[in-house]
Write a protein that binds this DNA or RNA. Structure first.
Lengths: 227, 227
DNA sequence: GTCTATAGGAGGATAGAC
DNA sequence: GTCTATCCTCCTATAGAC
C-alpha cells in the first residue's frame, strides 16, 4: 500500500507523463506476471518470461520492481483487497434465498471474468500460503466470520436449516472457484474444449438449486421460529 | 508402463536384492517428488531438492529416472489409476441416498489421507493439464460419463430431483477436494492451525446434508414416477 | 526511462571412478 | 548401484552507456 511519490502533488488528474509511462508499464508487468504465476507458481516463473510477455526488456522489469518477490507481493495485495466483494451479498437484512443466490452468481461471475486471479490464489494456496502476511490472514478470517454470523442468525431465526455455516461457505467457495481453478476438468466433464458462458449459467442454476434445496427449511420441518 | 527387466523371471516373490533396492529408492524419490511438485509445480521443483528429500545423491535420482519429466509422468500415471475408485459407490443398483453419502465420505477420506496427491493434481490443472495424455483425458471423461448416466437414471426414476448431473459431480469434487487443495483457507475459516479429523467429519456431515437436501425429491413434489 | 552486457550463481544432466 | 566432479545452460540481479 501507499506508493505515491509525485513531485507535484495531486493537481487533479494531471499526471506527469513519466507517471503515465510508469503506470502503463507496471500494469503490463503485473498482468503478465499474474498469468505466469497462476500457471507455474512463484518458483517456476522466470523474470525473463514476465519481461517477454509484457514486451519490456528484462532490465526494465527490475527498474519497476526490485525483485520477483515484490511483483508477487503486489499481486497478492491487489487480490486480497477485492477478496470479499462477493460476500457483501450476505447481509443480515436480506432474505437468505436471494442473498445466497446472488452470492453464488457473483462468485461464479468472478471465476469467469477473473479466472487468472483465482488460479493465482489457488497456486499460492498450494504453495502453503506462505506469502500471506499475518494481517492478510486476519483479514480473511475477519471477513469470513462476519458473514458466518449472518448465516448463524438466519438459522436461529428459522430461515435456514441447521447447517454448519463455515462448511457451507467452504462448499460455496469450492464449487464456484472450481470453474476457474480446475477449468480443464470442468471442460472435460462437460465435453467442451473450453468453458462457455452457458456452462457458467448452468453451473449457477445447479449450484443455487442444490444449495438452496439443502439449506432452506423444508415445509413441515420446523426450526425455533418466533411466529 | 512396463518396466520389468529381471534377469531371472518371477520365481514367486523372491525378488533379487538389487530389485529391492531399486523399489525402495524409486519409492523414496517418488514420495519426495510428489510432495515438491504439489507445492511448487513442475518448473518450480529442483532435482536437487528431490534428491535431498529422498536422501539420495542427485546423480542417483538420474540413475533411476531419465529426466524430471519421467518422474512427473510416473506420478501422473499412478494418480490416474486410482482416480475413479471413489466413484464406484455411484452404482445403478444402489439407492442414491446411500450411494451419494458413501461417495462423499470416500472422497473426503481420500482428501484427508492423500492430500499431497490431490494437491499435485490440482497443480497440474493450474498448469493447464498439459501433461495428461490423450488417453488419460479420455479415461477421465469415460469414467465420469459412466457415472453421469447412473445419476440420469436416478432422475428418470424420480429418485432424484431434476439436476444437471455433470455440475452436480463438479460440486462434489470441488467441495471434497477443497479440504486438501486449499487446506489453509479451510483451516483459517475453521480457526485452526491445521485441519483435524473432526473437521473432516463435520465437513462430511454438512456436505452430505446439503447435497442430499438439494437432490432428493421433496415430499409433495413429484417427478415422472412409475408407481 | 531504456536497454546491452555481464557478473555470479544455480539448475538439469552426464562422465566416469569406485 | 553409488557418488564426486563437472559441463553448459539459464537465472536473478546489477552496472552503466545511451
Amino acid at each position: 500500500m501507499a506508493r505515491e511519490k509525485r513531485a507535484t502533488p495531486g493537481r487533479k488528474a494531471a499526471k506527469a507523463p513519466e507517471e503515465r509511462i510508469r503506470a502503463r508499464n507496471e500494469a503490463a508487468i503485473l498482468k503478465a506476471a499474474v498469468n505466469l504465476f497462476a500457471r507455474k507458481g512463484f518458483d517456476g516463473t522466470r523474470i525473463a518470461e514476465i519481461a517477454k510477455a509484457s514486451k519490456l526488456p528484462k532490465a526494465n522489469v527490475y527498474y519497476y520492481f526490485e525483485t520477483k518477490e515484490a511483483i508477487y507481493a503486489r499481486l497478492i495485495e491487489r487480490l486480497l483487497s477485492g477478496w470479499d466483494s462477493a460476500l457483501e451479498h450476505i447481509r443480515a437484512d436480506r432474505e437468505p434465498r436471494e442473498a445466497i443466490a446472488d452470492y453464488i452468481a457473483a462468485k461464479l461471475e468472478y471465476s469467469r471474468k477473473n479466472a487468472v486471479e483465482s488460479r493465482f490464489f489457488a497456486n499460492e494456496m498450494l504453495r502453503g500460503g506462505g506469502f500471506l502476511s499475518r494481517t492478510q490472514r486476519r483479514h480473511i478470517q475477519d471477513v469470513t466470520h462476519e458473514r458466518v454470523e449472518v448465516v448463524e442468525n438466519w438459522i436461529r431465526e428459522g430461515k435456514l436449516r441447521k447447517i454448519d455455516p463455515k462448511h457451507l461457505f467452504i462448499m460455496l467457495w469450492a464449487s464456484t472457484q472450481f470453474y476457474a481453478d480446475s477449468a480443464e476438468v470442468a471442460a472435460m466433464t462437460l465435453d467442451r474444449t473450453s468453458l462457455r458462458r452457458t456452462d457458467y449459467d448452468n453451473a449457477r442454476d445447479t449450484i443455487v438449486d442444490v444449495i438452496l434445496g439443502g439449506c432452506l427449511p423444508v415445509a413441515g420441518e420446523h426450526g425455533p421460529t418466533n411466529d
